[in-house]
Design a protein around this nucleic acid. Structure first.
Lengths: 330, 330
DNA sequence: GTGAAAGCGCTAACAT
DNA sequence: ATGTTAGCGCTTTCAC
């Protein structure tokens, strides 16, 4: 059997209450008993049973973080920051990975988090359904979406995606490009692509450029989608003189796809990527990007979680600034 | 207050025991009560409290997985497989991320896992100290290292790293290369690099080639290390005619570093990478690699964990086969 | 098929 | 500064 506080109490000749107090550094005991208890705990290899502790104290300062093992790779940046910030605030984090396109799986993961009585769950590049958000709300757990806006009622931390689309396009136009492609997921189905696409259309319109439907390549966020997009753009000579890749992965695919087809980037076609992770500096030529500030997102996300703690939950939308980093593909 | 089984019991006019039975699908109740209870549970938004359940049943089928947010990127592959296999075996997984070079942090994470009473903890590309392994053993929790051999007494699942070094070198020699560089971390300090380097030396010796110390570039597993390694190899004209990169990231850095210095890969210098993740097909030219089978590693890791469950723990070493994938850099 | 009751290991009043 | 005691929400014998 594993050691428990009653074992320590017996050995130290004190009550379990005292043991609990010193083990939790709650004060109200003498230095001597404290030391004695600590030593015994150490000697017998005692470890608190968190189930028991959580149950008895009926609170729990852990948050749940769920991310999707996605084609994009900025998750790490956000998660790392969340872990760091959480540590500073003495929060425990439990992490889960959801599979893409597996709503049942996501529901199960969320159930697990509810059963573990976390007080908030953060979704990173994951699309929780309305039902899931509802489930969390009913369970009085704060739901939050990070790095990915949605159209339903949840707190979120993300960039202004319409502006991202707008500024990326504007940048290309200023560079003298006129036939600007847009490669990514379906722009009617998914929310973020829709926003970015709307910004793109607006920028085109504001510059008096008319949009041509064959500039749009719709698939998903992946490298392979980029490869195929490049192939697509090549079928028609001079179809586009620039392309916006919806993620670094797509842009990388575009870059390699064009390279394989011996299209000169940026002379024949300019490229701008959305995300701006390290990857952009690791391609040749290096990718110009709209760079999102994922570190700040992680930080703000924890701030939001802390602020609503022990309060009636409110829906808050935090927007984080982005910038454009010119590199070698424009 | 949150709903609990006693609430359901009251509403259904049964005892909490019955509620517990149906909620856990344990059988021994009529179809009717079952349905009634399920419905009520659903209606009032009941969620089990796992702390209470675990405490009462005094067992727990969750395993802990700890990975380090490393320069290398094969973690995802292993973790994904672990999650999949765990799901099949009805195991719960809790994931934690350790920071590099933060032993205190790792200890804390492991403590957390012990407190949560997981029955096994898996370390992926993480170096648990002897103390940590000991702590787990004393707590009767099965420790396991994946994708990374160590010299101390722990169960592990990994490739045969000496053979990896040997075969990579041999392959290059067969391609007619004679002055073969080796770029990675310190080959005396870290265990895996040491093994691979030993294999490399052996292959050289077996072919009657004598090793030159300036063929060795020691830093770490990162892309930047690769960049600097390429710079280093360039300082002396024709120092090497091939390089082994200890990870895909290092190799990518080497490739780009050589590209930036206008060294022709593979004509001037051939390159072989160790790991063989998707990255190798995403560079131009594509990287030849020693490809490790991370999926199988994840699978075997779970097998190991299952096999020792509820048994006296034994130290098992599982070796997973690798292969060489010739691509464009050799 | 169902219920009563005894804990699981801990925390937190409330005493002293 | 320390002890007593009553739970926390569930599972699990053991009755019936």
């Amino acid at each position: 059997m594993r050691a428990k506080i009653s074992d320590i109490a017996k050995l130290a000749g004190v009550s379990t209450a005292s043991v609990s107090r010193v083990l939790n550094h709650q004060g109200g005991y003498s230095r001597q008993t404290a030391e004695r208890i600590m030593k015994i705990a150490d000697d017998i290899g005692y470890f608190k049973d968190r189930s028991a502790a959580d149950l008895a104290s009926r609170h729990n300062n852990t948050i749940g973080v769920i991310y999707t093992d996605f084609e994009t790779n900025f998750n790490d940046l956000i998660i790392r920051q969340i872990m760091t910030a959480a540590k500073q605030h003495q929060l425990d984090v439990i992490l889960m990975i959801a599979q893409q396109n597996d709503p049942a799986g996501l529901t199960k993961i969320v159930r697990g988090m509810i059963e573990r009585r976390v007080f908030a769950v953060q979704f990173i590049s994951t699309h929780p359904s309305f039902q899931i958000i509802n489930m969390l709300n009913r369970a009085n757990i704060f739901p939050q979406v990070i790095g990915d806006a949605t159209n339903h009622q949840v707190s979120s931390v993300s960039s202004d995606d319409t502006q991202i689309g707008y500024q990326a396009t504007r940048y290309l136009i200023q560079k003298g490009r006129r036939r600007i492609g847009f490669a990514g997921p379906n722009v009617h189905q998914d929310y973020v692509p829709r926003l970015r696409f709307a910004g793109y259309r607006q920028a085109l319109a504001d510059s008096g450029l008319s949009f041509s439907p064959d500039w749009l390549y719709e698939e998903n966020y992946s490298y392979q989608a980029g490869i195929r997009a490049a192939k697509y753009y090549q079928q028609q000579i001079r179809l586009v003189d620039a392309v916006i890749g919806i993620s670094d992965e797509v842009s990388w695919g575009l870059l390699n796809g064009f390279y394989d087809a011996q299209v000169d980037v940026p002379n024949d076609v300019a490229l701008i990527s959305i995300d701006g992770t390290e990857l952009c500096q690791q391609t040749r030529p290096k990718l110009t990007s709209v760079t999102q500030d994922f570190v700040t997102m992680g930080e703000k996300a924890i701030d939001q979680v802390i602020n609503q703690r022990d309060q009636p939950h409110q829906i808050t939308t935090t927007t984080v600034a982005f910038r454009i980093d010119p590199r070698e593909t424009t």
